[in-house]
Protein backbone atom coordinates (compact mmCIF):
# COMPACT_ATOMS: atom_id res chain seq x y z
CA UNK A 1 0.00 0.00 0.00
CA UNK A 2 1.47 3.32 -0.99
CA UNK A 3 1.13 6.61 0.82
CA UNK A 4 -0.30 9.80 -0.59
CA UNK A 5 -1.15 13.28 0.59
CA UNK A 6 -3.40 15.89 -0.94
CA UNK A 7 -3.37 19.47 0.27
CA UNK A 8 -5.78 22.36 -0.16
CA UNK A 9 -6.49 25.66 1.55
CA UNK A 10 -10.11 26.22 2.53
CA UNK A 11 -10.19 29.85 3.56
CA UNK A 12 -7.84 30.07 6.54
CA UNK A 13 -7.85 26.30 7.04
CA UNK A 14 -5.25 23.91 5.66
CA UNK A 15 -6.81 20.58 4.75
CA UNK A 16 -4.54 17.60 4.22
CA UNK A 17 -5.85 14.17 3.32
CA UNK A 18 -3.59 11.25 4.23
CA UNK A 19 -4.04 7.84 2.63
CA UNK A 20 -2.23 4.53 2.89
CA UNK A 21 0.61 3.61 5.22
CA UNK A 22 2.60 6.37 6.92
CA UNK A 23 5.97 5.00 7.96
CA UNK A 24 9.51 6.38 8.20
CA UNK A 25 10.06 5.80 4.49
CA UNK A 26 7.32 8.22 3.45
CA UNK A 27 6.99 10.60 6.41
CA UNK A 28 9.08 13.12 4.45
CA UNK A 29 6.16 13.54 2.01
CA UNK A 30 3.84 14.50 4.88
CA UNK A 31 6.47 16.84 6.30
CA UNK A 32 6.90 18.43 2.89
CA UNK A 33 3.14 19.04 2.69
CA UNK A 34 3.35 20.86 6.04
CA UNK A 35 6.31 22.93 4.87
CA UNK A 36 4.48 23.92 1.70
CA UNK A 37 1.35 25.07 3.45
CA UNK A 38 2.87 26.69 6.58
CA UNK A 39 3.81 29.98 4.81
CA UNK A 40 0.12 30.54 4.08
CA UNK A 41 -0.37 30.98 7.83
CA UNK A 42 -3.43 28.75 8.28
CA UNK A 43 -5.44 29.14 11.47
CA UNK A 44 -6.33 25.46 11.53
CA UNK A 45 -4.66 22.32 10.22
CA UNK A 46 -7.25 19.65 9.44
CA UNK A 47 -5.97 16.16 8.71
CA UNK A 48 -8.41 13.72 7.12
CA UNK A 49 -7.23 10.24 8.07
CA UNK A 50 -10.09 7.82 7.44
CA UNK A 51 -8.03 6.14 4.69
CA UNK A 52 -4.82 6.10 6.71
CA UNK A 53 -4.28 2.41 7.44
CA UNK A 54 -1.01 2.58 9.36
CA UNK A 55 0.92 5.26 11.19
CA UNK A 56 4.31 4.80 12.80
CA UNK A 57 6.01 7.23 15.18
CA UNK A 58 7.48 8.96 12.12
CA UNK A 59 3.97 10.29 11.47
CA UNK A 60 3.66 11.48 15.06
CA UNK A 61 6.95 13.35 14.69
CA UNK A 62 5.52 15.21 11.70
CA UNK A 63 2.55 16.28 13.85
CA UNK A 64 4.99 17.66 16.43
CA UNK A 65 6.89 19.36 13.61
CA UNK A 66 3.63 20.86 12.27
CA UNK A 67 2.74 22.34 15.65
CA UNK A 68 6.22 23.77 16.10
CA UNK A 69 6.41 25.02 12.50
CA UNK A 70 2.97 26.62 12.37
CA UNK A 71 2.87 27.95 15.90
CA UNK A 72 1.10 26.90 19.07
CA UNK A 73 -1.95 29.03 18.24
CA UNK A 74 -2.75 26.85 15.21
CA UNK A 75 -5.29 24.15 16.09
CA UNK A 76 -4.73 20.68 14.68
CA UNK A 77 -7.68 18.42 13.94
CA UNK A 78 -7.32 14.71 13.17
CA UNK A 79 -10.52 13.55 11.54
CA UNK A 80 -11.81 10.01 11.07
CA UNK A 81 -8.79 8.13 12.42
CA UNK A 82 -9.28 4.35 12.39
CA UNK A 83 -9.09 2.38 15.64
CA UNK A 84 -5.37 1.47 15.57
CA UNK A 85 -4.24 4.92 14.41
CA UNK A 86 -6.45 6.52 17.04
CA UNK A 87 -5.00 4.20 19.67
CA UNK A 88 -1.47 5.26 18.74
CA UNK A 89 -2.43 8.92 19.11
CA UNK A 90 -4.02 8.25 22.51
CA UNK A 91 -1.11 6.12 23.77
CA UNK A 92 1.28 8.91 22.85
CA UNK A 93 -0.77 11.56 24.64
CA UNK A 94 -1.50 13.48 21.45
CA UNK A 95 -5.14 13.83 22.47
CA UNK A 96 -3.90 16.55 24.86
CA UNK A 97 -2.88 18.77 21.95
CA UNK A 98 -4.87 17.64 18.94
CA UNK A 99 -8.61 17.59 18.39
CA UNK A 100 -9.68 14.04 17.54
CA UNK A 101 -12.98 14.01 15.66
CA UNK A 102 -14.99 11.46 13.74
CA UNK A 103 -16.07 14.01 11.16
CA UNK A 104 -15.41 17.60 10.17
CA UNK A 105 -16.68 20.27 10.39
Amino acid sequence: MTFSTSVEMKGREAWITLEGELDAAVAGEFRQAIEEIAPQKPEKLVLFTSKLQFMASAGLRVLVFAKQQMGREVSIYVVGASGPVLNTLLLSGFDQSVYLQESYP
Binding site: A56, S57, A58, L60, R61, L63, V64, F65, K67, Q68, G71, R72, I76, T88, L91, S92, G93, F94, Q96, S97, V98
Partner: peptide
Protein backbone atom coordinates in the same frame (compact mmCIF):
# COMPACT_ATOMS: atom_id res chain seq x y z
CA UNK B 1 11.87 7.08 26.24
CA UNK B 2 9.18 9.61 27.03
CA UNK B 3 8.07 9.76 30.65
CA UNK B 4 4.45 10.17 31.69
CA UNK B 5 5.15 13.90 32.05
CA UNK B 6 6.57 14.01 28.52
CA UNK B 7 3.43 12.36 27.15
CA UNK B 8 1.32 15.05 28.82
CA UNK B 9 3.29 17.89 27.25
CA UNK B 10 1.68 19.95 24.51
CA UNK B 11 3.11 19.20 21.09
CA UNK B 12 4.63 22.67 20.90
CA UNK B 13 6.90 21.77 23.84
CA UNK B 14 7.77 18.22 22.81
CA UNK B 15 11.07 16.78 21.77
CA UNK B 16 10.83 15.17 18.34
CA UNK B 17 11.74 11.56 18.99
CA UNK B 18 11.65 8.79 21.55
CA UNK B 19 8.14 7.67 20.73
CA UNK B 20 9.08 4.78 18.45
CA UNK B 21 10.63 2.57 21.10
CA UNK B 22 7.85 3.53 23.51
CA UNK B 23 5.22 2.33 21.02
CA UNK B 24 7.22 -0.81 20.27
CA UNK B 25 7.48 -1.84 23.91
CA UNK B 26 3.79 -1.07 24.47
Amino acid sequence: MPTADDLDKPLSDREIGGLGVFLALQ
